[in-house]
């Protein structure tokens, strides 16, 4: 039921947009009608251009976020599980670093890593690292100590405790963190692809804006929103298929 309602709400939004454009309530020079944007999207899809851009962006996100997860998870487990005191010392530093506005950091990354792919993936990595790291740390911390005590009382080894307790005990929280990472990754994509790229959803927005191709600009905006939502949905499905042991909140409400 909830699913249908959200589909209806989205459809209603596009309908209002279309009507407002047709009735000239919107200045179509700046906000073209929804149907115009769709027409442009279909044209780009037909030429194959659209998929080239989506693929380029997804590839960058995949490497950036993948690297962030690959580094943040072991680091988070290490900090929370084995060196809690060090973790407490580092926490303010991490919080400050994570608060740095990613868009202001883009020039720094360009300076340090050049104009190529490395700096684009680098900025995505930097931004998405923090939610994943924080979720790994808090994921370990929120494990019920009584459960750990039970495993230890049976003489479980460190390796067994890691795989049988720490990992499953924190996986739900980690998924939530990775979802925030993906959202942030899509947000920063536009900035990362502004300079020195030849393809990507951010590139579409940047070049259309420069060339005053307004419908194409909206294609970029729409595609970032849709791809981001789809990737998040995919991760949510994964989360639900892995974390089967928790009471499903949706079912109660």
């Amino acid at each position: 039921m909830k699913k249908y309602i959200s589909v209806i709400v989205v459809a209603f939004f596009f309908l209002i947009w279309e009507i407002a454009a047709r009735l000239n309530i919107l200045d179509t020079q700046f906000i073209p009608a929804f149907s115009t944007v769709i027409k442009e999207t279909l044209a780009m899809a037909a030429s194959g251009d659209l998929f080239k851009h989506i693929f380029a962006s997804l590839l960058r996100l995949f490497f950036g976020i993948g690297l962030a997860v690959l580094i943040s998870l072991p680091l988070g487990f290490l900090l929370a599980g084995w060196t809690p005191r060090l973790s407490a010392f580092l926490n303010p530093l991490f919080t400050n670093l994570s608060m740095a506005n990613p868009f202001t950091l883009i020039p720094v990354f360009m300076l340090l890593l050049g104009m190529g792919e490395v700096s684009k993936i680098g900025i995505i990595f930097w931004v998405t690292l923090w939610p994943a790291l924080f979720s790994a740390i808090s994921g370990v911390r929120q494990i019920d100590p009584v459960v750990l005590k039970a495993a230890r009382a049976m003489g479980a080894s460190g390796v067994k405790i890691f795989f049988a307790i720490i990992l499953p005990g924190s996986v739900n929280r980690i998924f939530t963190g990775v979802k925030s990472s993906v959202t942030l990754g899509f947000t920063v994509l536009m900035g990362a692809e502004m300079i020195g790229s030849k393809a990507g959803l951010g590139f579409i927005i940047f070049t259309s804006n420069k060339n005053y191709n307004i419908p194409k600009l909206y294609v970029g905006i729409l595609m970032i929103a849709i791809t981001g939502a789809l990737v998040n949905l995919l991760i949510e499905k994964m989360q639900k298929s892995i974390v089967v042991w928790e009471e499903n909140v949706d079912r109660i409400m």
């Binding site: 009584v146 459960v147 005590k149 039970a150 049976m154 003489g155 307790i165 499953p168 974390v243």
Partner: peptide, 18 residues
């Protein structure tokens, strides 16, 4: 700790994911 003793706690301490 060793497996020659079994420990039952007030708060059950079951593994929620098992």
């Amino acid at each position: 700790p060793a497996l020659d003793r079994g420990f039952v706690m007030q708060s059950y301490a079951l593994f929620p994911w098992r």
